[in-house]
């Protein structure tokens, strides 16, 4: 893709589909509480949707009971110990 290429018009653009909240539109964040440390970069963590595998490569340390903010399967920050269920949205 570059800026010098000619622009062509679009034709039909309808995408039938169910009305739904986004499954993940990549900016959905979920708070998760670690229930098991699997290895040095993987934990099992409980979210509002159940227990799932979360990558923790980007965190310095992680232990059972810690709360983390997860985007796209990866914890991007740790959270204070209170059970704060922030999510976006």
């Amino acid at each position: 893709m570059n800026a010098d290429r000619p622009v062509r018009p679009a034709v039909s653009v309808a995408a039938p589909g169910p009305a739904q909240v986004c499954v993940t539109c990549s900016d959905d964040g979920q708070v998760a509480q670690v229930v098991e440390v699997v290895d040095d970069h993987t934990v099992r963590a409980r979210t509002s949707a159940g227990v799932q595998t979360v990558d923790t490569t980007l965190l310095a340390t992680v232990a059972v009971g810690d709360r983390v903010l997860v985007h796209a399967g990866t914890a991007i920050t740790d959270l204070p110990p209170d059970p704060a269920p922030e999510s976006s949205p």
Binding site: A15, C22, C25
Partner: peptide, 17 residues
């Protein structure tokens, strides 16, 4: 792909199509 991108229209169709 993430779910929402499946429904985003390209010039003629979507990934769901």
């Amino acid at each position: 792909s993430f779910g929402d991108m499946m429904r985003v229209p390209g010039s003629t169709s979507t990934l769901l199509d």
